[in-house]
């Protein structure tokens, strides 16, 4: 079974969970043998931007020592064999150029997106 993980809702609990929960879920399922592809769309295309940092969160004396590192989470997921795409049109509409995108993440046109959906047995839109 091939599953396409479409991630659209972005920065949903990422501070509290120290990651994106669906990218984390993909890591965990890949570890269990899942055949996954990830497509970032909508505001989640911003996950593919290099060099982001969410470090420095502090409330009173409490300090967050392990901030989310989405770039690393994407890179390591690709290292496990999961292909990650980012919607080209959603990048463009947010003014994000190709050179800002994490290495290894491929741009996806709407035509290619349709092909990807046709190739997948399960479409999970988060």
């Amino acid at each position: 079974m091939k599953a396409l993980q479409i991630v659209e809702s972005a920065y949903r609990g990422t501070i509290e969970e120290q990651d994106d929960t669906i990218i984390w879920l993909s890591h965990a399922m890949k570890g269990a043998g899942a055949d996954l592809t990830v497509a970032l769309r909508g505001n989640a295309v911003n996950y593919a931007v290099k060099g982001q940092s969410a470090a420095g969160l502090a409330f009173g004396e409490w300090q967050q020592t392990q901030a989310p590192d989405i770039e690393h989470d994407l890179t390591s997921l690709m290292g496990k064999g999961v292909k990650i795409y980012v919607m080209e049109a959603d990048l463009a509409s947010r003014g994000i150029s190709r050179d800002k995108v994490v290495d290894g993440v491929d741009l996806l046109s709407f035509d290619d997106f349709v092909d990807l959906i046709e190739e997948s047995d399960r479409i999970w839109h988060w």
Partner: peptide
């Protein structure tokens, strides 16, 4: 999460509601 994968694989269909 591995249970989710296994359950979905053994089902006729699946739906995620995020």
């Amino acid at each position: 999460p591995s249970d989710f994968w296994k359950l979905a694989a053994a089902s006729e269909n699946s739906l995620v509601i995020p």
